[in-house]
Design a protein around this nucleic acid. Structure first.
Lengths: 245, 245
DNA sequence: AACCCGTCTGTCACTTAGTGACAATGTCAC
DNA sequence: GTGACATTGTCACTAAGTGACAGACGGGTT
């Protein structure tokens, strides 16, 4: 918690990169708290600035608009899914990978992360009624989509801007968004977090397979011998969901 | 062409409903034209008002924000897809329906509609770089998603707020969005519209099947005897039905 | 005709989100 | 230390958007 900025890169031109993200996150926390307590319209830039202890001008230096103040806290709430997808080894199935990563996550999470996650869920909930916030949420999902395109492209051996890849990424990201909204709503309504968490892993794996027509989800063979000639023809019949559980 | 407002409903409170939509569309046309010519930031509310021949105050009476001025023209550019999905008879396949509707559309389209469609495509293109406009585009896609939920729910015999339906709708809407962006970019780059049009129909049908894991796209049997036992269990473990709600 | 009534619109004053410009401070490199 | 650069604060300013009031249009009643 001490001001140890030693080990971080600050190659040239100030302590940016890392410190900037911390400041943005700090602002975002306060903004989200106020948004949830008083609504977006009921919260002014001056209030946010005062709450975080900075001048209003500095707030606008870090965020281009009031609503976008919520972005970091929202982005962080999907960051773990993103990181999980990013670190998905080619030779593992989605279910396996999510199961192990989820375990690791549960053991590593601290109270601060938990609070942030709660704020993120609240922002997603607010986004359902506040169009201004919906932008922030959809932007975060947009980012997920972009990252997913990279992941999927790698697994299918195609380029990230390939139309098929983009379609898969978009469908998957949309499904993830719906699941996040569903799980978030459940958590706010008091559903048992543990059960909901377990459910959500199954949901995610299932949704990814479905949204990509079964093309993404199974282990892939990197070297050669595709052995799955069905991925190019997205016909009606579903793929064999080899539950590697 | 004449001011025949007779046949239209004006059940309560003035000629609204229809006239209001015309005014909004008129504003939207000019706004889109200016946005494309000078960028969003380079266009002021006063300019839009002057271009359309109204006072600035009236613009804000019709639109809650500058960017949202683009919404009607964007919404109209996806309206035909929406209408096509909406009128999709249960017993037909998606390919059949889109093919006949596309023919009908080509014969019915006029120069005004064509101009509007061009503006819509330009707005979608602009949305890739102008975050303010991206909101309008994503909002339109959001509307598509909602309508799709209804369509899919009907075809699968489920409720529109069923999680599975929402997942299918979200994935499908996302795929449609990507196709629209792809086709729009192609049109602006000078690809032959006819060929691109034919392509897009195939894309859409294909994408809908893929995005829903094959659950949506085929004719359905309304009365009974599903004859397609694969649609209920789209993945490994069917978590959906046990909604703890 | 005059009259009323409701809606739409314009004008103007006003709040607030967001920017530009400049000065003050703080930090690193030397 | 001093100079270069980045961050922040202060203040004046533009532009988005709202509230309030008044006039215009239009249609129905007598």
């Amino acid at each position: 918690m001490a001001d140890d900025v030693a080990s971080t890169e600050r190659s040239r031109g100030g302590m940016s990169e890392q410190r900037r993200r911390r400041v943005r996150l700090e602002i975002s926390r306060e903004a989200a708290r106020l948004f949830w307590a008083q609504g977006v319209d009921g919260t002014s830039g001056d209030q946010i600035a005062e709450a975080v202890g900075l001048s209003t001008r500095t707030i606008w230096r870090h965020f281009r608009s009031k609503e976008s103040c919520a972005e970091p806290i929202v982005a962080q709430s999907v960051e773990w899914e993103l990181a999980t997808l990013r670190s998905w080894p080619p030779r593992r199935s989605l279910e396996e990978h999510f199961a192990t990563e989820a375990k690791r996550l549960v053991s590593e999470i601290g109270p601060s992360e938990q609070a942030d996650a709660g704020l993120g869920i609240k922002m997603v909930r607010l986004a359902e009624t506040e169009p201004a916030l919906r932008t922030a949420w959809l932007m975060a999902c947009d980012q997920v989509e972009r990252e997913l395109a990279g992941v999927i492209a790698t697994r299918l051996g195609l380029r990230p801007d390939d139309l098929q890849v983009r379609l898969h990424a978009a469908a998957t990201a949309a499904a993830l968004r719906v699941i996040n909204e569903y799980v978030g709503a459940g958590l706010l309504d008091g559903t048992d977090p543990r059960q909901l968490g377990d459910e959500s892993f199954a949901f995610i794996a299932d949704a990814v397979r479905t949204a990509t027509g079964g093309a993404v989800g199974d282990p892939v063979h990197t070297d050669e011998a595709p052995a799955e000639p069905d991925e190019a023809a997205p016909g009606s019949c579903g793929p064999g969901p080899s539950t590697t559980r």
